[in-house]
Each structure stands twice: as structure tokens, then as C-alpha cells.
């Protein structure tokens, strides 16, 4: 059943990275409950453009929950009210007619606001560049069964590899810690034989890069797990801790 609702949006507007931001109220009238949250923002933006105003900047790309580009904290929750969903997968049927909806950017020192709701998440890229890869010679692919991987290990690694790097874990963490993201990447390699040659080097380097970006520390509150659109579990953080302890002991 589709219906139309009217909302008041309370949106963070910030001209650029160095300017001060402020809260601005917008009326979102005649919004179909079949619209996605981002389509609703599109509709609001079209009206802003017609009035000659600057549209609200927000990140998005695939709009089907796979690229990790969309962000937003909606009514205090990263990726809005649903579990296991990205902001682009949130629909307006989750909102009550007449409600005021606050829309904020992800907040962390390591994720500075670039404009309005767009934040710079390149800190994640730098952490990945520090060790989130395996070194292989290019050329023709090796025979798939040369290295055997037990099914449970492969599945656990795939669960970790489901991370799309959206940064909601950082946004929801009371400490703005990136441990869930980094742990997903560490797990994904630590569980597979291909990840083993660089095992210690990787975790030491990625931990160092993570701290250098100014993320907070993990207090095991599990808010990250609760907002993760890909349902990455807290046990990966325990594995990261384990891998880091092991590598620190073995380090020469």
C-alpha cells in the first residue's frame, strides 16, 4: 500500500571542509512511502534546485547496497532504522507522517566532512594500502584446486569479505573506532592460506595505519556489529586482537 507522507528534515549543511556547518530545516512534502530514502532526498534536492538553492550533497553510487558509498546517520542511527541495510536500502514506509527526521554526516576525526553530508573516508583506503592485500605474481591464474581450503574456513573468510567499507561501524561506535572494518579485512586474509605469507606483517602494518588515522579504541560495545549492513560479527575483532598479539610476540 503506497501512501504519501510529509516530513520535516533537519539536515546538516556545511559549505566545505573548512567552513562551519549548521542545521537547516526542509519540508519534504508529498513523499511516496514507496520511495527510498535517497530518492526522497533527490526529490527535496530537485525542489531546491528549482528555487535556485544549493542541493544537499550526499554520497551514493550503486543504490542497491553493494558499493558502500552511501552513508548518513538518520535519526541517530547509521544507515537509518533497519538492520542489515545500507541507507540506500531504507524506504520511506519506515517513517511516520509529520515526523521530523534528522540527517547527519558520519562523525569521526578520521572522516572529515567535505560538504554537507559527504565525508572523506579515504582513511580506510590508507589502512588498506598498508596491508590489506596479498602479493602474487601476475600471469595466468593457478589451478583452483592447487591450494585446498576447508569449506568452513572459506565461508568464514567470505563472511568477513562481505564488508563493503562503508564506515558505518566507525560512525556508530561511541569511540569512533575502526576495529570492525580492520578486523574484517584481517580475518578475510588470516583465514585463507593465501593470506598466511604476509600474516604478521599485515596485522602490524594495518594496526599502525589505523591508529595513525586517529580512530578511537575498541571498548567492545558492539554498536558496530548492530549497524553493519553486511552483518560483520564482533568475533572478527577478537581475531584481530589475537592476530595482533601473536604478531607482536613473534616480531623480530
Amino acid at each position: 500500500m503506497s501512501a504519501t507522507i510529509h516530513l520535516t528534515l533537519k539536515v546538516w549543511r556545511q559549505k566545505n571542509a573548512s567552513s562551519e556547518g549548521r542545521w537547516v530545516l526542509y519540508e519534504a512534502k508529498n513523499i511516496s512511502t514507496d520511495m527510498s530514502f535517497l530518492e526522497m532526498l533527490d526529490a527535496v534536492n530537485e525542489r531546491l534546485v528549482l528555487k535556485g538553492e544549493d542541493p544537499i550533497a550526499f554520497d551514493h553510487d550503486c543504490r542497491e547496497g553493494i558499493c558502500g558509498m552511501c552513508s548518513l546517520v538518520i535519526n541517530g542511527q547509521a544507515h537509518g532504522p533497519q538492520k542489515a541495510a545500507t541507507t540506500c536500502q531504507i524506504y520511506m514506509r519506515d517513517f511516520k507522517d509529520g515526523a521530523t527526521v534528522t540527517v547527519e554526516p558520519f562523525r569521526a576525526r578520521a572522516f572529515p566532512v567535505l560538504k554537507d553530508l559527504v565525508v572523506d573516508r579515504s582513511a580506510f583506503d590508507r589502512v588498506m594500502a598498508a596491508g590489506g592485500y596479498i602479493s602474487v605474481n601476475t600471469g595466468s591464474a593457478v589451478e583452483a584446486n592447487t591450494i585446498l581450503i576447508p569449506k568452513d574456513k572459506a565461508e568464514a573468510a567470505m563472511d568477513a569479505a562481505a564488508c563493503i567499507g562503508c564506515g558505518a561501524c566507525v560512525a556508530a561506535c561511541p569511540n569512533a573506532s575502526a576495529m570492525l572494518f580492520v578486523s574484517a579485512k584481517i580475518s578475510h586474509f588470516a583465514l585463507l592460506p593465501q593470506g598466511l605469507p604476509e600474516r604478521e606483517r599485515r596485522v602490524l602494518a594495518m594496526r599502525k595505519a589505523m591508529d595513525a588515522e586517529g580512530f578511537g579504541n575498541c571498548s567492545n560495545e558492539a554498536e558496530c556489529e548492530a549497524v553493519c549492513p553486511k552483518e560483520i560479527k564482533l568475533n572478527h575483532i577478537a581475531r584481530l586482537n589475537r592476530e595482533f598479539l601473536r604478531a607482536s610476540i613473534l616480531k623480530k
Binding site: 542511527q77 561511541p174 569511540n175 579504541n217 571498548s219 567492545n220 558492539a222 548492530a226 549497524v227
Partner: peptide, 26 residues
């Protein structure tokens, strides 16, 4: 350090069910 990691806080923050009373008040 955790404080410093988020210099500008949220206007609104609502748990999706991860944290507990104990964890929030450590």
C-alpha cells in the same frame, strides 16, 4: 583518545542494540 576521535558529536544518537547499560557507563 576516544573522546578526541570524535571532536564533533551527533545531534542525536540512538543504539541499534549493541551496547549495554554497563558498557556505556564504564
Amino acid at each position: 583518545e576516544d573522546r578526541r576521535a570524535r571532536p564533533i558529536g551527533y545531534l542525536q544518537q540512538k543504539s541499534k542494540g549493541g551496547s549495554s547499560w554497563g558498557s556505556r557507563t564504564m
